[in-house]
C-alpha cells in the first residue's frame, strides 16, 4: 500500500478512530461524524447522495456518510480515474475515512478470529469449504469484503501513480504556473512524496546518463517553444464513454443546467467548440464524447465515466 494508514490515523482526533457502532436500528452503518466531515478538499463531489460537496475546504458540516455511500463513491472515483485522460483530484477525506474503516475492521477481524481460535483448539480454515459453524460466516464475509476494498484501493492508487509518472513534467508545470495549493488538492500527501522523489530520480538519471554530455542548449527536457512541446499533456479531447447521472440530489427540476425537450426528458446541453456543434446529453443515456466537453459535468458528478 502506498498510503500510510498510520499517518492518517495520527492526524485524526483519537476519538474518530473509534468508529461509531451506534444505533439499534442501524447498528452496522459506520458513521464518521467526527472531525472528518467535508467530502473533498475541492469541489469534486465524491458522493452523489451528499449535497454538501460544494463546501470549501475546512468547512465542517455534520453530514454523516455511511460506509456504503463511501464505498460507492470510491467505485465511481476509481472508474472515473481509470477512464479519464487526466489525473483527477484526490479525495482526501473519503480516503482517510476509508482507510480508517479498513484499519478498524482489520483489528476487529483479528479479535474475532482470535476468539474462535480460543474456542476451537483446531485451527480455523477460512477457505472455501462450507462452514458449519454459522458464527464463522460473518467473519468469512467480512474478510472477503475487505479483500475487495483493498483491491479497489490498490487499483485506484496504481492508476493514479501511472498518471503521475506519465505527467510528471506536466505536473511540474502546473506547480510552477499556479500556486502549490492546486497540486496539494490533486495529490495525496504520499502521492506528493512519490511524485517529487520520482521526478528527482528520473531527472538525475537523465542527467547522469545523457544530458550532462550534451551542450547546454540541448539539455532542456521541458522546452515548450519548439515545434512540439516536450511536455506531454493529457489528451484533453480524448473520447470517453460517459453515463449521464444528473444532479447529486436527484432534483432534476432544480438543476439550472438541465433543460427539457418536447417529451419532457431532461438533458444537459454541451457544445463541442471545435465543431461548433451543440449536443444534448439526456439523463441516463450513454455517450461517447470528448473529455473536455464533459469535464465540468464530470467534476460536478453529473456524469460518470464508464
Amino acid at each position: 500500500m502506498d498510503v500510510d494508514i498510520e499517518d492518517i490515523l495520527a492526524e485524526l482526533n483519537t476519538d474518530s478512530t473509534a468508529v461509531d457502532y451506534s444505533g439499534n436500528n442501524n447498528p452496522l452503518s459506520d458513521i464518521a461524524n467526527t472531525n472528518v466531515s467535508t467530502l473533498y478538499n475541492s469541489s469534486y463531489p465524491d458522493d452523489k447522495n451528499i449535497p454538501t460537496n460544494k463546501n470549501p475546504p475546512g468547512v465542517r458540516s455534520n453530514t454523516k456518510i455511511s460506509a456504503e455511500q463511501d464505498y460507492s463513491s470510491l467505485m465511481t472515483l476509481w472508474r472515473n480515474e481509470r477512464c479519464s485522460p487526466e489525473l483527477l483530484p484526490y479525495p482526501h477525506h473519503l480516503m482517510s475515512r476509508m482507510l480508517m474503516r479498513i484499519q478498524d475492521q482489520l483489528e476487529r477481524l483479528e479479535i474475532i478470529s482470535m476468539d474462535f481460535m480460543g474456542q476451537n483448539s483446531n485451527t480455523i480454515d477460512n477457505s472455501n469449504k462450507p462452514i458449519n459453524n454459522n458464527n464463522m460466516l460473518p467473519l468469512l464475509c467480512m474478510e472477503a469484503e475487505l479483500e475487495r476494498i483493498k483491491f479497489i484501493i490498490r487499483s485506484y492508487i496504481r492508476c493514479r501513480l501511472s498518471k503521475i509518472d506519465k505527467f510528471s513534467l506536466y505536473l511540474r508545470q502546473i506547480e510552477q504556473d499556479s500556486n502549490l495549493k492546486s497540486l496539494d488538492d490533486l495529490l495525496s500527501k504520499d502521492e506528493m512524496i512519490y511524485y517529487q522523489r520520482h521526478s528527482e530520480m528520473i531527472l538525475k538519471l537523465f542527467n547522469d546518463t545523457t544530458l550532462k554530455h550534451l551542450p547546454p542548449e540541448l539539455q532542456a527536457i521541458n522546452d515548450t517553444t519548439g515545434t512540439i512541446s516536450m511536455i506531454d499533456e493529457p489528451d484533453w479531447n480524448k473520447f470517453v464513454f460517459i453515463k449521464v447521472i444528473g444532479p447529486n440530489d436527484k432534483m432534476l427540476n432544480s438543476d439550472p443546467l438541465l433543460k427539457k425537450d418536447s417529451n419532457n426528458k431532461f438533458f444537459y446541453e454541451v457544445i463541442i467548440p471545435e465543431l461548433e456543434e451543440d449536443v444534448e446529453l439526456f439523463i441516463d443515456s450513454i455517450y461517447v464524447m470528448r473529455y473536455n466537453v464533459i469535464k465540468n459535468l464530470l467534476l460536478d458528478g453529473k456524469v460518470i465515466l464508464i
Binding site: 512540439i228 512541446s229 516536450m230 511536455i231 506531454d232 489528451d235
Partner: peptide, 9 residues
Amino acid sequence: MGYYDIDDM
C-alpha cells in the same frame, strides 16, 4: 502524438 512518439518521428 508527443515529443517522444516514435511513430511521429
